[in-house]
Amino acid sequence: MDITNVEFMLLQIICERKEASGYEINQLIKERGYREWVDMGTTSIYVGLKKLSNKQLVNSYLDTTKQGKGPMPKKFEVTNHGVALLKQITLEYLSTSRERDNKFDLALAAIPFLTTNEVVTALQKRNNFLTHVASNINEKFESQGGVRLPLHVQALFRHPLLLIKHEIEFMEVLIKDLLEKNDDRRMDE
């Protein structure tokens, strides 16, 4: 099942909180700076929640404990299917995202829902994936003339190679830190 980055982020937040209203979700998005990784406004939150509900990834109910003026807020909670999909997509994004892909950043925010071993394995897969991508870029660069290419064309090859190099370095440090933690529990326990 395909979900958007907004839906992925919403699933994470609701799963982390166990339940949340649209207002609470919007506040967390502001506090954590999620808009740096996902292009969204307040309306996108409510559209995303409706889509998640239609896909049966979240359930909703009216919070009758609210006191004071205004309507009763609708609270959302993730279904078992939603939790399973969250884990599946997190593993996919951690292991196959290209450099400069916001999906990877969003997946990093979801690692508390996985075991340390799952995260390390996914990061190692991404490391191998990016190494292969870099190799393909290098081959194409050389086959098209390498350093004899115009500077602006060389830059088109060198830019992703440098980004990949730094992504791999970042993942190696993260893997080392995760292994030093040396447990196989879910990351949030």
Rank of each mutant, 00 (worst) to 15 (best):
N26K: 09
Q27E: 12
Q27N: 11
Q27L: 06
Q27P: 01
I29T: 00
K30R: 10
E31R: 09
E31C: 01
E31Q: 14
E31M: 07
R32V: 00
R32M: 09
R32I: 02
R32L: 14
Y34T: 04
R35I: 07
R35Q: 06
R35C: 02
R35E: 10
R35M: 03
E36S: 11
W37G: 01
W37Y: 15
W37D: 13
W37F: 15
V38M: 08
D39Y: 05
D39K: 11
M40H: 04
M40S: 10
M40N: 05
M40K: 04
G41E: 15
T43F: 04
Y46D: 06
Y46S: 11
Y46E: 06
Y46I: 01
Y46C: 02
V47Y: 07
K50W: 00
K51N: 12
K51H: 15
K51V: 04
L52T: 06
L52Q: 01
S53M: 08
S53Q: 13
N54V: 07
K55S: 09
Q56S: 09
L57Q: 13
L57N: 12
N59Y: 14
S60A: 10
Y61K: 14
Y61L: 09
D63K: 04
D63P: 04
D63A: 03
D63I: 01
D63W: 04
T64V: 11
T64A: 10
T64L: 12
T65N: 15
T65M: 06
T65S: 15
K66Y: 09
G68H: 04
G68M: 03
G68Y: 07
K69Y: 07
K69R: 13
P71D: 12
P71H: 10
P71S: 13
P71R: 13
M72W: 02
M72S: 09
M72F: 12
P73H: 03
K74S: 07
K74F: 02
K74T: 15
F76C: 00
E77K: 15
V78G: 08
N80I: 13
